[in-house]
Design a protein around this nucleic acid. Structure first.
Length: 272
DNA sequence: ACTTCGACCTGTTGGC
DNA sequence: TGCCAACAGGTCGAAG
């Protein structure tokens, strides 16, 4: 589910609601998430004050005063809910963090592809964080970097951009969107993309992500902001989920194909 | 080293 | 109406 803009939306809400608050209880549901919690997770987080939440790729981090960080990945269907009242739990509420002022942060994940972890002080020693490429909205993710990677790749650009070890934060929606805006076919091989096109692509990826963050992310089905409101970027999607509809640039019909098991949407006229 | 594929889960949708 | 297959915003690890 959540790609960078959805995770960033959640991070911002957490920043507003829990920064400098102390964890007084932690409860984990009986259903397994993708991975088990680290040993002693509970005792290492209770009593800790949370500092300003961070985001790395599709991960959200809650830095603790001990130096460790709670690492959150939302998988495909994960949500964060923030409440101030003890409401009835949903069957997919898998972790509940209680704060000293009565705020609750609830981790809910219907499909349980997501997970929680605890990192050391240096987050880059964490097994999940250390294999990520530069963040999609960072300066490190620039045209030269991308071009140097692409020039050896036989693989299609769609799958390259989904690879979190190359660039962190992009998922299926925004890769489709960025390729359409950049007029690049998802079938194009990495090595056949020029440096000039890389400049375009980088600029467009960042523009799309920033606009999506402003809109609170994209709600197709599952995503919601921690206060329960939706993400409004869906109304601005150019190709994702629009097969059979007209291309907004040239009026040709948007096509749908499968690439490594995932759906891609594109315009065969604009995108080459 | 590079790439694809199956597996992990639950819920919804569309075809018959 | 009911059943079943296919599919969904992700990613790990095995296999080719």
């Amino acid at each position: 589910m959540p790609e960078l803009p959805e995770v960033e939306t959640i991070r911002k809400a957490l920043e507003k609601q829990i920064t400098n608050k102390k964890i007084i209880d932690f409860h984990i549901g009986n259903k397994k998430l993708r991975f088990d919690l680290p040993e002693k997770f509970k005792q290492l987080v209770i009593g800790q004050t949370v500092m300003k939440p961070l985001r790395v790729g599709k991960f959200c981090l809650l830095p603790l005063c001990s130096g460790k960080n709670i690492l959150i990945h939302l998988g495909m269907s994960g949500k964060i809910k923030i409440t101030t009242s003890k409401t009835k739990l949903d069957i997919h509420d898998h972790a509940i963090i209680e704060f000293d002022d009565g705020t609750f942060v609830i981790y809910n994940d219907q499909r349980r592809f997501g997970f929680l972890d605890l990192t050391e002080e240096n987050i880059f020693t964490n097994k999940f964080i250390k294999k990520l490429g530069p963040d999609s909205v960072s300066k490190k993710f620039d045209a030269i970097y991308l071009f140097n990677i692409l020039k050896y790749k036989e693989r299609n650009i769609k799958n390259i951009l989904l690879d979190q070890s190359i660039v962190a934060g992009l998922g299926n929606i925004y890769v489709n969107e960025a390729l359409h805006l950049s007029k690049i076919s998802p079938n194009r091989r990495g090595k056949n993309i020029s440096l000039k096109k890389c400049y375009d692509l980088i600029k467009n990826i960042k523009t799309i992500l920033k606009n999506a963050i402003k809109a609170g992310g994209t709600t197709i089905k599952d995503h919601m902001q921690p206060d329960g409101s939706l993400g409004y970027f869906k109304q601005k999607l150019r190709v994702y989920g629009r097969s059979g509809c007209k291309c907004i640039m040239c009026k040709a019909t948007i096509k749908e194909i499968k690439q490594s098991g995932r759906t891609s949407f594109y315009c065969g006229v604009c995108q080459r």
